[in-house]
Design a protein around this nucleic acid. Structure first.
Lengths: 124, 124, 124, 124
DNA sequence: GTGGTCTAGACCACG
DNA sequence: GTGGTCTAGACCACC
């Protein structure tokens, strides 16, 4: 799968999964009608507890991204793309903005900050 | 004081205080030998719990930024400036890098990301 | 057939089938000696999984409503009518009672509750 | 407390808690600003697992009924009353309607159904 | 003390 | 096989 999780990221694990699934839908990596990995399978791949995955999937259903196909699993809703694109901008924007806001307040030299940013953007 | 705290920032409050004190030392707003506000005074100013301030001060002593002057309170250590400058680069760098890394992975268009960053840098 | 199933009803699908078969017997729509559709036929009609139908039929045999006639399928037992009438009162009564009990406990105005009930009874 | 839970109700336990808290707010039993019992306390009272209570409380926060006061617990939001009154009508209405719909379809005599309803309403 | 998160493992309903 | 619910118990952040 295209997901990876970092327990030390600060964000709760289930939230990392939620965000990444939304990003995948926004990018078109996950298309409407596609099934996501089963709870147990994704838990095994990410080496986390199935309950944590289940929690993420439940959030994604509440957010209108996934829908339960009884007995078969969860799939991406037909109307999820637009919502996910908007979500992506919101989620990424908030995190970048708050990081940069702290960077400015920290008194770090403009040059150093620019260097940090450019380095990161080039690293891709 | 020059500190401000945002409960919705994601970072724990005590950590926001720790980081901002370090930034203040790195910027020269707090100079070696300066006393920091008492636990209860800072707690009152920031409208947070004294225990939270105490925890931050404890962390700052462990990190070698503050030192206890018997009967007077806590003051900035003589040798704190260099450590704080390095710390600042590390803390800010890690947070900016991780925000930008997620932004890249999210598949957001380069243009949109650039716009987000520039907007934030101008806003200052 | 006279059965219809609603996945969003809250009740498990197999239970909806069990109840509706019992109601059909109580109403005389299904008479003792009548054969019920085969598992796969009913599954096709209701667009549900054959296992789900099989489970319902198994429950109905355990409840003494259906009986297996070797090689022919399942048919309504001769003595099923009385049991189904009693069952109907019990099943419907329990569900209505529990819905109304919650309605009362919820503090909803008597008038509003009456209106809800009358509207539903007229809609039929 | 004014809550009671029935594991055999059909509804998940966490959902019973969610509904009853909403009803309590709609009735004015819980007023904006009131604190709800702590997770651990309510779990002990209802003899259920704290995680189950936590799940209910989390749902209630997502629904805008409760808000977390850091370190102190959860309290009813100032603007929760109207939403809860609407929720109550919706939740109760759906359940009563679906029970009565099944009752009608079951072929139960009108008289019997009326008797069931009146008995339940008088029982209060 | 508070809620939030995570793990582990169980059982159920459904396909 | 699938997801949903529940229990049990742990650790963390915060007040």
């Amino acid at each position: 799968m295209f997901l990876h999780v970092d327990p030390a990221d600060g964000l709760p694990i289930y939230d990392q999964v939620v965000r990444q699934i939304k990003f995948a839908v926004a990018q078109g990596v996950l298309k409407p009608g596609n099934r996501v990995p089963s709870v147990r399978e994704l838990a095994r791949e990410l080496a986390i507890n199935p309950n944590t995955v289940a929690r993420a999937y439940q959030q994604l259903q509440a957010d209108g991204v996934l829908v339960n196909v009884r007995g078969l699993g969860l799939e991406v809703r037909a109307d999820a793309i637009d919502a996910c694109c908007a979500e992506r901008r919101r989620l990424v924007g908030a995190r970048v903005a708050s990081a940069l806001a702290e960077a400015r307040r920290s008194g770090l030299q403009d040059g150093e900050l620019r260097a940090l940013i450019d380095e990161q953007l080039r690293a891709s």
